[in-house]
């Protein structure tokens, strides 16, 4: 097979992701052209800061969706880890690092618990996570009954600005002036963090047997079982990794806002937005098709749309309506599938 044919096949298989990526690029470039200070580091830093948390939560939502389920607790786990982080991210550098570790561990353990309930309790993911989400919110409220927190100022500054500021804060690479840091100096740290987590956690997972099993379960669980794939391990691993991603979101939110907030409404909003981001990113809610990278793109699309309200002179009262209509129209594009179907029965799955 020629190289070109392989490329075409990839496009055909990932049409949802490719469309989303194209949409994001167009939206983002237009935004920067319209913005009076477009294409500057400051704008990129601001944008990426506001995107990071929802991007992580969208990645977290991807895994259960790939299984053909849904995780209604991602927002709550993010809130829980956000509150944990707001208590622990202070003191000496080692204490801070240990706090980060504990925060990520909390989310991962919670994801593991979700996985165990789904696998060994044999409860549908959507309803199991509805319940564990309530538990996560309850724990978050125990830890932080009122919004607030104590997060190290240097850390908050270093991780929410450009790579130069990061190096400057911690006196690395000649205070950010080293020649080899120059090409990266203007890149916002949150983007680096997202890419880092995606490359270190998602890519190896997807290529592993466990990761491929997740896709197989989403396509046809019976077939995956008969092929001898490790179904239980894959399900638990998917929820655990989801919990880890959600914890990354909570950790970042704590660093960004220097506080924790056990807000039920906020948790619900993050969960619902994560579903929207996952769908926009080309992942099928029926399972088996999609990727966390797609959800990343989907989350960015959602955020860029809201950035437009700042530069275009739109009545603030109309913003929720426009956001809703854009979301509804975007997901309605999925309806084109029905036009291609030759046999009515193929519609029913």
């Amino acid at each position: 097979m020629t190289h070109k044919a392989g490329w075409k096949r990839w496009l055909f298989q990932n049409i949802g992701f490719a469309t989303a990526l194209l949409l994001l690029i167009v939206l983002f470039l237009t935004y920067n052209i319209l913005h009076p200070r477009g294409f500057s580091s400051a704008v990129a830093i601001q944008n990426s800061n506001e995107t990071a948390a929802i991007a992580f939560v969208a990645m977290a939502q991807t895994l259960p969706v790939l299984l053909g389920g849904l995780d209604l607790s991602v927002g709550a786990v993010m809130t829980l880890t956000n509150c944990v982080a707001s208590e622990l991210l202070n003191g000496s550098p080692w204490q801070i690092l240990f706090g980060m570790f504990l925060t990520l561990l909390t989310g991962t353990a919670f994801g593991f618990m979700n996985g165990c309930i789904v696998v060994y309790g044999r409860i549908q993911p959507i309803i199991a996570t509805l319940a564990t989400g309530a538990i996560a919110i309850g724990l978050a409220l125990l830890i932080r009954p009122k919004p607030g927190g104590n997060v190290d100022d240097d850390l908050g500054w270093a991780l929410t600005n450009s790579v130069y500021d990061f190096a400057d804060t911690y006196g690395l690479a000649d205070g950010g002036n080293a020649w080899w840091l120059r090409p990266f100096a203007d890149i916002p740290v949150p983007i680096m963090l997202i890419v880092f987590v995606a490359v270190v956690a998602w890519v190896p997972f997807r290529r592993s047997v466990t990761g491929r099993t997740v896709y197989a379960i989403g396509s046809a669980e019976g077939a995956a079982y008969m092929s001898g794939l490790p179904i239980e391990r894959a399900k638990i691993a998917a929820f655990t990794l989801g919990g880890f991603f959600a914890a990354c979101g909570g950790l970042y939110l704590a660093i960004q806002t220097s506080s924790g907030n056990a807000d039920i409404q906020q948790a619900g909003a993050y969960t619902l937005n994560s579903i929207a981001a996952v769908v926009l990113g080309g992942t099928s809610l029926l399972g088996g098709v999609g990727s966390a990278i797609g959800s990343l793109v989907g989350a960015m699309i959602l955020r860029v749309i809201s950035f437009y309200f700042r530069i275009l002179d739109i009545d603030p009262l109309l913003q929720p309506l426009i956001e809703g209509v854009v979301l509804l129209v975007a997901v309605s594009f999925g309806a084109f599938r029905t036009l291609r179907v030759k046999n009515q029965l193929d519609l029913f799955r």
Binding site: L285, L286, E323, G324, L327, L328
Partner: peptide
């Protein structure tokens, strides 16, 4: 008719 999963379609309608 559009065959969009109810999970996401009703969510969109809710937002609208």
């Amino acid at each position: 008719y559009l065959r969009i999963p109810s999970m996401i379609f009703t969510l969109g309608v809710d937002t609208v």
